[in-house]
Design a binder for these strands. Sequence first.
DNA 1: CCGTATCCAAAAGGATACTG
DNA 2: CAGTATCCTTTTGGATACGG
Lengths: 139, 139
Amino acid sequence: MATTTAAQRRQEARQEYDAFMAACPSRQLLDRLSDKWVGLVLSALADGERRYSEVSRRIAGVSQKMLTQTLRNLERDGILIRSITPSVPVRVGYQLTPLGESLLPVVQAVKDWAEAHMDEVDAARDHYDEVNRRASSHG
Amino acid sequence: MATTTAAQRRQEARQEYDAFMAACPSRQLLDRLSDKWVGLVLSALADGERRYSEVSRRIAGVSQKMLTQTLRNLERDGILIRSITPSVPVRVGYQLTPLGESLLPVVQAVKDWAEAHMDEVDAARDHYDEVNRRASSHG
DNA sequence: CCGTATCCAAAAGGATACTG
DNA sequence: CAGTATCCTTTTGGATACGG
């Protein structure tokens, strides 16, 4: 039947693409690494095991929900280990696995690049905004 | 006046924190780098200047809106240059700046880590899901 | 060819209340 | 202490139509 519309065909093509992209190894992990709090959690655990409340205080601005979610995702990915001491009150510690530690220098490299080039980026933004502001009001 | 509620005070504290966080150099750039399409755009331009349509075809799944938005942000940050040839039809090319090229190895490092450790992460996920599935149905 | 503008759906993320 | 569950706002991103 020729009842497939152009929109339907485009939709199908997009789904095939999505399946391809979902199968792409680096994309899956890049998505996880860009999870907003992952970098900070990794940094918080760089020096060894920390309790939930310690991580929470170190990162400060993170909500309970997002911190737990991030920690669970990283645990699931084998980046960190969650260990529960069944005392009262219960004590929960998080520490990086060897896999997590291997990721640390990569995250650090991104952070280092950011800190090293922040001035350049700021200058570029100011310049861009200036030029753009003039262009908007030039008549 | 003592009409400030606990919620209000918490809100103010949060805003102070946000201002502090917003001022943190690495966070601003980490946010930009995690913009979903940034990595792919950078890779697409790794070999030199490309036209808009070339980049679009290389990345495939990206919508016109997101591609343009990503390119504009990166241009604003001084990561790439946009050059317009006023022919008919107009021809627009994008190429990395030296700053953008300095970022390339960092992005590549993340991608390399992802590809190198994808198997471990997959195995960890399977294990986690397996254990979790059992825990859910153990009684 | 290379966009911009608008509308709308989905996902991310915070606030709050409650639990073992 | 260390969460879970729910509600609600904000953000993100795709579809579509239109402009230079």
